[in-house]
Amino acid sequence: MSIKLSVVDQSPVHGSHPKIDAPRLTIELAQLCDTLGYHRYWVAEHHDSIHFANPCPEILVATIASLTQNIRVGSGGVMLSHYSPLKVAETFGMMATLNNGRIDLGIGRAPGGTGLTSQALAYPHQPHHGDLYAQQAQMLAGFVNANLPAEHPYSRINVLPDSIKPELWMLGSSGGSAGLAGHLGYNIALARFIDPDNCHPSIFDTYSEEWKQAGHEGTPNKMLAIACICADTEEEAKLRTGTAVYRKLAAQMGQREDFLTPSQVQDRYRELPASYQAEYDHILNGYTVGTPDQCWQEMEQLASQFGCDEIATVCVTYSHHDRMDSYRLLAKHL
């Protein structure tokens, strides 16, 4: 199977650099991936995070698109519950028009932050916590495709005259949005890196069935997004992965601190009770880790298992160099 390789970048705040550099490092990595032949580069949205430094994906998308040549650039994704569908359609329509249609508009239901940030983003109104997500997603698609029903109160609104459409995607991690994505005609990206235990191929089956029943034309795109860290040796790859794995474990333990170095993670691991060591090992098992050959072998297995031809990798490391190195090594198989 020929696999298209893409990137989902959470803009990690690397311990190897000043925190203020995190957005710039995302741009640096995007430019590298453009030269290496990656298919798309998506940026995520997080609010009030000490680990991830991108609360406004539309700004990074616009900047990256202006500094790259071939790679598709998009949001993975815009957390739609915080925003007006019309404004999102206008923003991404403008970016697609200015960048020869290389823009993807991926949306998600999650808040991308705490309840407090949701309140602040909704001020002076009250957050709806995703309760209106289906209606928002439907309206957004109607604005982008200029096909809101004639009886819709906003049907006469023209987003941009003769604009190029961004490619519409919906994100999910455990199947809750699969049926909605298929029904509304969105492409689907399944975030296995968030919840590998509940991320099953049947989610894509549900999506495809809803797509067919809705009568959409053509074949939709399906992407599987995984956590992947690659190095010259399996031992080094596992060592580099410790930073991201321990962050997930720490969140479960109610801890919030900056990324730890790989050696600090090893020290913490030895001090953990056996039950937490087992949970750490379980989280690590959900990652794709190893040499380029090992990573590609697992990615090919996942692509076959899930019936998709595009894999996006999420790579979070303490060192920016290690993250760049991981993407360079993976690209050797492109």
Score class of each variant (00 low, 15 high):
His129Glu: 13
Pro57Ala: 14
Arg72Met: 15
Thr114Val: 09
Thr91Met: 14
Pro127Arg: 10
Gln119Leu: 15
Ala96Pro: 02
Glu90Met: 13
Thr97Met: 13
Phe52Tyr: 10
Gly130Phe: 00
Thr97Asn: 07
Gly112Thr: 00
Ala120Thr: 11
Ala122Lys: 06
Cys56Tyr: 02
Ser66Gln: 11
Leu67Ser: 10
Ile64Gln: 01
Thr63Ile: 14
Pro111Leu: 15
Val78Asn: 03
Ala89Gly: 08
Tyr123Lys: 15
Ile59Pro: 01
Gly106Gln: 08
Leu98His: 02
Gly74Phe: 07
Arg109Gly: 00
Gln69His: 11
Thr117Lys: 04
Phe92Asp: 03
Pro124Phe: 06
Leu116Tyr: 06
Arg102Met: 10
Ala62Trp: 02
Gly77Gln: 05
Asn100His: 10
Gly108Asn: 01
Gly113Lys: 06
Gly130Trp: 01
Gly115Leu: 15
Ser66Asp: 08
Leu80Phe: 05
Gly112Ala: 07
Ile59Gln: 12
Asp104Phe: 06
Met94Asn: 08
Tyr123Glu: 15
Gly113Arg: 05
Ile59Ser: 11
Pro85Gly: 04
Leu116Ser: 11
His82Pro: 04
His129Lys: 14
Pro127Lys: 13
Asp131Ser: 12
Pro57Ile: 12
Leu98Ala: 13
Glu58Leu: 10
Ile64Cys: 05
Asp104Cys: 11
Gly101Ile: 10
Glu58Thr: 07
Asn100Ile: 12
Gly101Asn: 05
Leu98Thr: 02
Glu90Asn: 08
Leu67Tyr: 04
Val73Ala: 09
Gln126Thr: 06
Phe92Ile: 14
Cys56Ile: 12
Ile103His: 00
Ile71Ser: 08
Asn100Gly: 11
Thr91Ser: 12
Ala96Thr: 04
Ser84Val: 09
Asn100Met: 13
Ala122Pro: 00
Asp131Met: 10
Ser66Glu: 09
Thr114Glu: 09
Leu116His: 06
Ser75Gln: 08
Ala65Tyr: 00
Val88Ile: 15
Ser75Cys: 13
Ala122Arg: 07
Gly112Glu: 00
Glu90Trp: 02
Leu105Glu: 03
Ala89Gln: 04
Pro127Gly: 12
Val61Pro: 00
Ile103Leu: 12
Gln126Tyr: 03
Met79Lys: 03
His125Gln: 15
Met95Cys: 06
His128Asp: 13
Gly112Gln: 01
Phe52Trp: 07
Asp131Arg: 13
Ala110Gln: 09
Gly130Ala: 14
Gly74Leu: 14
Thr117Ala: 11
Thr68His: 02
Val73Trp: 01
Pro85Leu: 09
Gly106Ala: 14
Pro57Glu: 08
Gly74Gln: 09
Ser81Pro: 02
His125Glu: 14
Arg102Phe: 01
Phe52Asn: 14
